[in-house]
Amino acid sequence: MKRGWWEGQTEALGRALTLLGRAPLVTAVVTLVLATALALPATMAWIGAGVTQWFGGQGTEPQITVFFQQTIDREEALAIVQRWREDEVVARVVFVPREAALARLLQTDLGEAIETLPDNPLPDAMTVVPRRFAPQDVAQLQQRLAAEAGIETVQVDTAWVERVHGLARAGTMVAAALAAWFALGMLAQTYLAIRLQLVAAAQEISVLRALGATDGYIGRPFRWFGWLQGLLAGCVGAALWGGLVAWLTPPFDELARLYGLGGFLPFPAWMAVLVLVTAGAVLGVLGAEISLRQFFRAST
């Protein structure tokens, strides 16, 4: 009678746990190195996502401010607003009556100066948010708005929009490059750890081969070893990540408060933690597989 797949795997898992426990200090150091390789890019990605959220709420969505001529009356202005609301390239239009604009201005440091004026100097205005944020689309919409009768001025800081977009793109690329770099480092570290285990077990492997063990049988505990080491690193990495996030959240929140940007991202979602732990386990198995293939090829 042949034993089942599960029994073979359980036995190999037991061997892998023995290998991990044989040198606890080495296991702890390797785990810490791998966990750092996982936690650092994850923390950077968290910071990047938080910063993007700040600007996402405040301005990566370009907003065009349109001031009506003082000569047109409210009904005409509202008719223009309504026409632009129906335009297909426009996401939304918010009408800002001159009274509301004045009331807002009175709340600022200019309030006292404004109060001395006999009349409200501000025109009616509207803010227009385009559907597409590409700088050329925003510029085109700006030109169309400026050509509209009854409109005095159109303001949009396209350069600022471009800068924010550029910064976001660069940030994303840096985070991705770092993640890839650290993933490679983790692969190399797991490869090395498994390689050392294989060298240490050379006599045992030679005996198993003589007794008829296949490469699959010989490699099974080492694959489990890589998986366990990666999983352990993933768990410790998630804990490190959580610690870093908890440590960094108060100063980021303070920064956000000072700039009126709203709160920073909350603690990473469980799904993100799960992804980090899974990434650790997968990279561990991959490192083990590369190491095993190279070892078997060399020992043929």
Partner: peptide, 13 residues
């Protein structure tokens, strides 16, 4: 037990 386990004989057997 090694030759038996390598050949896939169930552990108890």
């Amino acid at each position: 037990a090694l030759p038996l386990l390598i050949a896939g004989v169930p552990r108890r057997q």
